[in-house]
Amino acid sequence: MNGVELVLRAIHHGEQELADDLLAVAGRHSADHEVHHVATDLAAWSREHVERVTGTARHRGLDLAEPHQDDSSPGLLAALKENAAEAPGRRPEPGLLLLRDLRDLHLKAAENSLYWEMLAQLAQATRDDEALELASACHPRTLRQVRWTNTMIKTLCPQTLSSL
């Protein structure tokens, strides 16, 4: 396996996880409506990235489209935790849980952003136009995911943490 394939594999995994995590967070925080709706929209970006990465990998004889759902996947965990915000109704804990989830999404998106950075750098160094185009097309949206989670944390944390 060469370097591009290594990074493609990492991005594929990272974007797949982020898509799942975004949907899980959307489900868990359905009573925090903005998070619910925007996280759902942003999951679509990560899914699209997964498809594009899969396509690029396929051109190189690398099959990344293996079935990824298994029993320990975040999808199942997400289903278990779904609507945690609704069940306890008006307790403050969902606020803390939301901050934790947003932090995790932020870190995951930042990790993906670094992979895109590596792919772009490597592609330039090796004059791999296809990989560079892929990174240029996808990286901006990953950065927007990073900024969104940052903005949400910045906005919500003072109220949540000062009212404990």
Partner: peptide
Amino acid sequence: HYGPPTHAMQMFRYAEQGSL
């Protein structure tokens, strides 16, 4: 001014959660 002033829908959410 540590963030954008709170919008109405978020105020109702804070009230729902009991911090407002």
